[in-house]
Write a protein that binds this DNA or RNA. Structure first.
Lengths: 119, 119
DNA sequence: TCAACTATACAAGAATTATTGAAATATACA
DNA sequence: TGTATATTTCAATAATTCTTGTATAGTTGA
């Protein structure tokens, strides 16, 4: 993954509005939502929702498909998986035993580890 | 996880410099790096590195421990795991069969799925 | 074609963030 | 105590992003 792709995705999710949009779309899965639905679900002016959706689309975080006069948006879950891989690339290089258990648990987001202790 | 925590983490990673810092620290694992090392590794003015590290620390993305006159920074990996759980909360609600395979593969970041097809 | 509807594009001001240089704080060591 | 080192804080400017209102483009169905 290119660094610019990663920063664009993170920039997209750094706004409360865009984070709400993304999580809403993740919940909807393959069904997705059309722009107007998103705007009214989150009580946003349609042009503001459109502004944020444009940025998210450009970052690849959501996809858009035209349906007549509607625009249907869907979350791009695979991109999130690529992003996680990018972040943990070469994790704990040189000391694989350190992060073995961390990466193992990262396979099950439900299992949250306690914070790293500071020596 | 609180929404504000999530947006702060994403905001932290939305800058190329901070993303570089985070990935550098992930590679170092528990060993971490002191501020000066980080600045010279990334060819940054020390005060600029400090500026970004402060924000990342406030977001919880990195932790800091004093070692004499040095400040040692470490990546907070568990927070990233919480974040992933937060993002995929109620994923594909109502149609669990849709995302079953996606979530299964999310357990192994190496396996990247093709983009979601748009109907 | 016309009117209603959906959505995006554009422009302007407010607000936020980034970068740099200079100064300050704190620790280490002779 | 005095000097050097490590890091942070502060101030000022530059750059970017957010929000709102208005205008434009495309689609639908009478």
């Amino acid at each position: 993954m290119e660094k610019q792709t990663a920063t664009q995705v993170f920039e997209s999710l750094s706004s409360g509005i865009r984070l709400d949009i993304y999580r809403l779309l993740v919940k909807r899965g393959l069904e997705g939502m059309v722009a107007g639905q998103i705007a009214s679900a989150l009580d946003l002016p349609p042009n503001n929702a459109s502004f944020h959706l444009k940025g998210m689309t450009h970052a690849g975080l959501v996809s858009v498909a035209q349906e007549g006069r509607y625009q249907r948006y869907r979350a791009n879950l695979p991109l999130m998986l690529e992003l996680i891989a990018y972040l943990t690339e070469e994790c704990c290089a040189g000391h694989p035993e350190q992060c073995a258990e961390i990466r193992a648990d990262s396979c099950c987001p439900e299992a949250i580890l306690p914070p790293i202790t500071q020596d």
